[in-house]
Amino acid sequence: MLRKILKPFSKFFEFHARTHYRAERHSMGLTIGIIAAAAVGGFVEIAPLFSIDDTVEADPNMRVYTPLEQAGRDIYIREGCYACHSQMIRTLRDEVDRYGPYSLAVESQYDHPMLWGSKRTGPDLARVGEKFSDEWQVQHLADPRSLVPESVMPQYAFLLNTSLETASLPGRLAALRTVGVPYTDEQVANAADDARGQAIPDSDRAYAVEERYGEATNIRFFDGRRDRLTEMDALVAYLQILGGLSDLPRNMQIPEGD
């Protein structure tokens, strides 16, 4: 029956099979097969994570990075610090004892991209904020072996002599807002000024930063110099806020590690 119906078209099928179809069938089939086999695993694992409400603990008091801290984060990325320092404390007893409460998902909610890292040539930095003084951080970055003789960290003295470029900060904050960080219009528009203000305490700009980003914001001469805003200011401001964006981990009970 089927054959009868198809008979008028048999010429077409034969032609098709002889030329195009035959040559293409296998390679297209292979292509579709590979995509079908390879796509599913990623989909199954990643897609549910985007129903974020259940994946990430809620913290209504979660802070965003100030422009200066974000600029510092960009320098951290630029210098490849993530190649040797993780920012992810695992739920293991020794890690909690060494570095502090284990990292929660909410803490890197605004981290585009995350900097969890994959290797600890140096220690984890997820909670390094306020563990050391600004002076220590500046000295350690400029010449690590003057403070830790055994250290193999590269020296970053040039950050002290490099002015921080702030003109692009509004654009950066706007891009971050596009991908989901809740910056306000005001915060975006004043990003360059706020970056300066955060490193000059007791100035009008500094008060504006406090107003826009909250009382808890660190406003200090991070690199110890009042005359100019350097990349060192930004990087130290970033390091000092690590682990300080959310109070949730410290408030939650520390469970025993596995």
């Binding site: 599913v40 695993g41 199954v44 694992e45 897609a47 549910p48 985007f50 129903s51 409400d53 994946t55």
Partner: peptide, 20 residues
Amino acid sequence: MDTSYETLSTIAKSFGLFYL
């Protein structure tokens, strides 16, 4: 998103097994 994380991940997991 209407579908909760719970349902999504259950569907994902069981589907994955059958697919395998």
